[in-house]
């Protein structure tokens, strides 16, 4: 079962997973920015092996509560305007059953996606790690620690990262980084998530129609 509610950041284009979901009798895939709202439209949800709800930065519990055994959250990691990666963060809760987890994992694996399992926290894994890193890099750029080119070159040569943080954010969208970072700041209240100045500027310019 596939239910689409609004634009999906995880699947903005056709994908084998969507095809597989359409014909699947025991897996429900709910995608789109209002995916969680579609949960109410599923008849007898308890009969499904697994229901997968696409998440933004919010917790799965916002849609499913804390005690659902067969409802999981997911997001295919995507940085700003870049195309989605093949990495899916699969969100489970304490009440998630082993059989539902296995069914969800097998369903995603079969579509060629790579799964990283995590608990139900805002930002899951990657955003929890990269948003503070991006904010720190942007702040150090403002402080004149090094040029943008040298900051990027350092992490590429020193760590083998494919792209440095500044070039990566400029390519994928500083305003999007602001949105995610601000959401995590609201969730955790930790200064590391406070959007860096350049991200705030990018967001404001976007709101003013300048970019």
């Amino acid at each position: 079962m596939l239910i689409e509610r609004g634009g999906s950041r995880s699947f903005p284009a056709p994908h084998p997973l969507l095809d597989a979901a359409r014909d699947h009798a025991s897996i429900a895939l709910l995608i789109g920015e209002d995916a969680g709202a579609a949960l109410a439209g599923i008849d007898a949800p308890g009969r499904m092996a697994a229901i997968l709800i696409e998440l933004g930065t919010e917790c799965l519990a916002v849609h499913a509560g804390e005690g659902a055994a067969n409802i999981l959250g997911f997001a295919r990691f995507r940085l700003g305007d870049d195309p989605p990666s093949d990495l899916v963060e699969l969100v489970r809760q304490g009440a998630t059953s082993a059989s539902s987890l296995a069914a969800a994992q097998a369903f995603l694996d079969a579509a060629g996606l790579s799964v990283a399992l995590c608990n139900d926290i805002a930002g899951r894994i990657i955003d929890r790690l990269v948003r503070p890193y991006f904010n720190a890099a942007l702040t150090k750029l403002d402080e004149g620690l090094a040029t943008a080119a040298d900051l990027d070159l350092t992490v590429r040569l020193g760590l083998g990262y494919p792209t440095g943080p500044i070039a990566l954010l400029e390519r994928s969208g500083l305003a999007h980084h602001f949105d995610v970072s601000a959401a995590l700041l609201a969730a955790y209240g930790e200064p590391a998530y406070a959007p860096a100045r350049r991200a705030r500027v990018a967001k404001e310019r976007k709101l003013r129609g300048k970019d």
Partner: peptide, 22 residues
Amino acid sequence: GVAEPADIDRAVQRGLGYPMGP
């Protein structure tokens, strides 16, 4: 307890293209 080391490393490698997880 958010995730196991292997899941964190896999997320970073596959999601960001880093050669090695943290």
